[in-house]
């Protein structure tokens, strides 16, 4: 890490690239000059970056929650009915192979340049991915567990709630993790192209103002948020569930 920072600073100090393209990270090139860190901290203090981060995260969470609900329902339907599996299931896996940003031009036409378009591509990407993961997870529940539950008198939704869903939880969490990563990408791409506020739009602004310090500051935020959520939410959750069930976690 320290070496990387040192190399970065060296490139900046020797002015291999112009300063607006390669701003220094920590040590300013002239007294009072711009650095990525300074922009990051100032942006956080004056609220500009914080507000944009909040905006992006808000959209992400709203879109993600809707996607989880929709994805669970679609995943369940695909699992439950062979007909739906053959029709909708096939359709879903075809759509899923289309990167979700490809939908953006269409979303702009349908919903205009705004939050709705961004939400649309978040929900689309995450829902498709999650419904495929979940339908596979539901299908791979050990038949013995289902037979045990049935002999005890469980059926219908009770069987789903008490056996099929809990048995699928490890795959469910893995699916959430992937869907979350897809959603996070979709938010930023949508904001970048759609100009509806948030970190993505700020990133585009940084580009047009030729202020790479702002661009890098935002990239740091994006990376940090992605890592924190992945490591502190999903990985922790996954470990907890697997350990409880006695499945060895390979580190």
């Amino acid at each position: 890490m320290a070496i990387l920072i040192a190399i970065w600073e060296a490139i900046s100090k020797f002015e291999i690239f112009p300063a607006f393209m390669w701003p220094p990270l920590i040590i300013p090139n002239e007294p009072g000059g711009v650095t990525v860190m300074k922009t990051l901290i100032n942006g956080l203090i004056d609220g500009q970056l914080l507000e944009a981060t909040g905006q992006s995260l808000g959209r992400l969470i709203v879109g993600f929650v809707i996607a989880v609900i929709l994805g669970t329902i679609i995943g369940f339907l695909i699992y439950k009915s062979e007909l739906i599996d053959d029709t909708l299931g096939f359709f879903v896996s075809t759509l899923q192979s289309v990167p979700n940003i490809v939908w953006f031009p269409l979303a702009i036409l349908w919903f205009g340049l705004g939050v709705e378009s961004v939400l649309f591509i978040i929900i689309l990407g995450a829902t498709l991915s999650l419904s495929i993961t979940l339908s596979t997870a539901f299908k791979s529940v050990p038949p013995l567990n289902i037979r045990v539950a049935r002999t005890m008198g469980s059926k219908g939704f009770h069987l789903f709630r008490t056996v099929i869903f809990p048995a699928s939880v490890p795959q469910f969490i893995a699916g959430l993790r992937v869907a979350w990563a897809l959603a996070w990408r979709a938010v930023l791409a949508g904001e970048l192209l759609g100009g509806s506020g948030g970190l993505g739009t700020l990133l585009d602004m940084g580009r047009s103002l030729q202020s790479m310090d702002l661009v890098f500051a935002i990239m740091i935020i994006i990376g940090v948020i992605g890592t924190i959520i992945d490591n502190f939410v999903f990985v922790k959750l996954e470990r907890l569930v697997l350990r409880k069930r006695g499945i060895q976690v390979v580190k």
Partner: peptide, 11 residues
């Protein structure tokens, strides 16, 4: 029914 494997719910 008691099956050949216990089929206990691991969760």
């Amino acid at each position: 029914v008691v099956f050949q494997e216990s089929g206990l719910f691991p969760w």
